[in-house]
Design a protein around this nucleic acid. Structure first.
Lengths: 212, 212
DNA sequence: TGAGGAACTTACCTTGCGGTAAATTACTTA
DNA sequence: TAAGTAATTTACCGCAAGGTAAGTTCCTCA
């Protein structure tokens, strides 16, 4: 062995394994910092590898992002779909959806934010793909929120649009809080959300509302 | 006059006026793109000026950010303070707070996001100042949410923390939606929020909740 | 009319990033 | 044991951003 003057050469890690490591590190980095602020050198360093390897395995930065996005998007879309489709929309459907999301995200919570990154190059393939995912998810949610609004006496389409946004960001918020509290299990989170919903209901049930 | 071979030299715009222009453009750029993704050349171009001038008037990029942050933070903190302090916490306090925020933000809606930028250099003065602002605002909100939770039968401090986050991000979400719908007046937004609250109440008032 | 200061730009430097071509080392197998 | 291939690095390019020093033009007023 003697004197390895260069650190080049294989380290015995098979390609597939390495790719998985890279995807995991990249997902975490993209999820926490966002596409624009995330840097390939930083991701590479996490894995203990050079950024060149990232390029060789995944191509450009956006390609790598896409490689992170697709599995996460597929998994979440599928989760939400089955959570909502079980039976008709009921009052606790939202909680069931939340629970399924928490469960699907356990082990890699930041992955959620890979789906909703605003700093993506707007014209790129990654942004297009992400938009596909959340428009599909939104469509699922839209059914529930529309019913809700009709029941509450509103037929304004902008109300529906706004509610869609609120719901989507509410999930993001809860996940963000969850990321900061790693000890919380998915089930504990779901129960917490149920309590929060109950508290919120108290807030909004005042009949003497001057803003109506 | 003849041939001005260089475009250097004054354009007759007094320093204070120019500084205002720069602050406005920078606030918009920082608010929409975020600190990391925003670029000084882009801001300079909006104003029709060179980035060097930004440096001469405001110093470093972070200094400029701070110069944007302080007036916005002062204004919003003040607004929320008076909106909450008018009398005791009632059920429609949240709507009053929202209305005051919308009103204060009218004319420069993206400014809200200057307060809550996650891409700031974590150790810098700007991040510290921003944290001061929203911890002050959170403290105001904490009173209301704590009461809410107690009423709903929860004494878990983590519930309170989570609710604080949710409320904060809810405001951000509503403002973000508002930015995308420039024709909506602050009053119209407030009324819309009242309707959304009502709809949300319907969602959370199911007594047969299996997640409790 | 001719300083002097105020408002602005030109030209430059440095750094860090995304990206590529060409090695270099280790593992396998004929 | 030598050849071939898989895994990885070294060394480089170009670019755009943040930042600075030194001018250049215009306005004002003694």
């Amino acid at each position: 062995m003697a004197t390895p003057r260069s650190k080049a050469g294989t380290k015995g890690v098979p390609r597939q394994h390495r790719q998985q490591q890279i995807l995991a590190a990249a997902t975490e980095e993209f999820g926490t910092r966002g596409y624009a602020a995330a840097s390939l050198p930083a991701i590479a360093e996490r894995v203990g590898v050079t950024k060149t390897l990232l390029h060789q395995y995944f191509g450009t930065k956006e390609d790598l992002y896409l490689a992170c996005l697709v599995p996460v998007g597929d998994r979440l879309l599928d989760t939400v779909r089955t959570a909502m489709g079980r039976d008709g929309t009921t009052a606790h459907t939202p909680l069931r959806v939340l629970q399924s999301i928490f469960t699907a995200l356990e082990g890699q919570r930041e992955a959620w934010f890979v789906l909703y990154d605003t700093s993506l190059p707007a014209d790129g393939a990654a942004a297009r793909r992400a938009a596909e995912y959340w428009s599909a998810i939104d469509a699922l949610a839209a059914g529930g929120t529309a019913d809700l609004l009709r029941a509450a006496g509103s037929d304004d389409p902008l109300d529906a649009d706004a509610l869609k946004y609120v719901w989507r960001d509410l999930v993001a918020t809860l996940v963000r809080w969850w990321v900061k509290h790693p000890d919380q299990s998915p089930e504990a989170m779901t129960r917490r959300c149920a309590r929060l919903f109950a508290a919120a209901a108290a807030l909004t049930s005042d009949p003497a509302d001057p803003f109506r």
